[in-house]
Amino acid sequence: MSEHAMIFAPAPLLTVTVEQRAGRPDIHLHAGGQGVWQARMLTALGGRAVLVGGFGGESGAVLRRLLRKEGIQVCPVRGTVRNGVHIQDRRGGRRVTLVEAQAEPPSRHDLDELHNLALVQGIDAQVSVLSGPSPGDPELAPPDVYRRLAADLTANGARVVADLTGSRLAAVAEGGAYLLKVSHEELGAEHLAPTGSVRELAAVMRRLRTTSRQVVVVSRAEQPALALAGGELYEIVTGRMTPADPHGSGDSMTAGIVAGLLRDGDLKAALRLGAAAGAINATRHGLGTGGREAVERLAALVDVRAIDADLGHRVRLDREELAAWLTRD
């Protein structure tokens, strides 16, 4: 097993950004999407990323070339997949989306190929990361794909980290993923933690776990993140930073955690590195970006401390109850 991470990204996104430079439009092409941002930050931190995903059409060809230029190994499934394209205008100082061309859903055969390729690459990796499709593309990868992949990788000795929400999060929890990452905004949007209090979030974290061995991490924007490991609830305290663009900070946090697990497997050290990576990303305008030295210096200042949220009894849910609970209106 080599020291790298397999990142499952069903359909990466091509972003075309228009900026202003010397009074003229300045055009930039970037690979995007959750898995790409995670792979980019992991690479910046010295880790090696192998990205498994669907790549098709002209946008897919461009994406493969862009990712390889960044030092990210690409394992593509071409098939019938057509990658989405977003065109954004940032000349006014903020991100304005002009066009959103959504990806075309993969065929059943393509989904099987994605599962098999991710399984093979994940078994050979030290950590496997399951990332979600674009929020506007709910049909790109059904929850059952994630459940089977998490279960198969775990059964074959892989350590699975999942950064998902809704029914996909429920699926990987049931599949036995080692670490589940979600944001407090996502839990709030699903009416699971409407107030966002520590007590409320901690209760959700306990209910989400299907085994006591699973670790649950909840990012909370500028507030300290929370981590539930074993019987302990931890608060991850990072120094205050002035944000430039917080987009992608949660994915950078996930990548930092994975980078830490790749280094020595120590969970607390990985949580410190993840918190620092998320904070540094928020100070920059690129998604999933950050300098390794800055992240590691900040990580040394991050405090991971046990807290008491007075949680009461743990509630166990079966698979159907958990999926319904996570996706209720």
Rank of each mutant, 00 (worst) to 15 (best):
G92V: 11
I87K: 00
P76Q: 07
T97C: 00
V77L: 11
S59V: 06
N83C: 08
R64P: 04
P76R: 07
R82V: 13
G92K: 04
G93N: 13
A61K: 13
E58W: 03
R78T: 15
H86K: 07
R95Q: 15
Q73H: 15
H86T: 01
L63P: 05
S59R: 12
S59P: 08
G92T: 09
G84P: 04
R90E: 11
P76A: 03
V81A: 05
N83P: 13
V74C: 02
V81W: 11
R82L: 15
G84N: 01
T97M: 04
E70P: 04
I72F: 05
N83G: 04
E70Q: 15
N83L: 05
T97W: 01
R90Y: 11
R64Q: 13
I72H: 00
Q73P: 05
R94A: 14
I72T: 10
N83R: 07
G60I: 08
R91S: 11
T80K: 14
R94H: 13
G93L: 11
L67H: 01
E70S: 02
R64W: 07
C75R: 15
R82G: 02
H86D: 01
I72V: 10
D89S: 04
C75N: 09
T97E: 05
R65V: 12
T80V: 12
C75M: 15
R90P: 07
L67Y: 05
S59M: 05
R68D: 01
L66N: 03
L67D: 00
Q73C: 10
R78D: 14
A61C: 09
S59I: 06
G92F: 14
S59Q: 07
A61L: 11
V81H: 09
G71I: 02
S59K: 04
R95W: 09
L67G: 01
V77T: 07
E58M: 10
R82Y: 02
C75S: 13
P76F: 11
K69T: 10
L63D: 02
N83V: 09
G93H: 09
N83S: 03
P76L: 07
I87Q: 01
Q73D: 14
L66M: 08
D89L: 06
C75A: 15
K69M: 10
V85M: 04
V96D: 15
T80M: 13
V62H: 14
G84Y: 03
I87P: 02
G79M: 13
I87C: 01
T97D: 06
V81R: 07
G92Y: 11
R64G: 15
V77A: 04
Q88A: 12
R82N: 03
P76N: 04
G84H: 00
D89G: 02
R95T: 11
L67M: 11
R91E: 13
I87E: 00
V96N: 09
G93D: 08
A61R: 14
Q73G: 07
R91N: 06
V81Q: 12
G60P: 13
V62A: 14
G92N: 10
G60C: 07
D89N: 12
V96R: 09
K69Q: 14
R65T: 15
R82I: 06
G79N: 14
R78G: 11
I72S: 05
R78L: 10
R90N: 08
A61D: 14
E58C: 09
R94Q: 13
V77M: 10
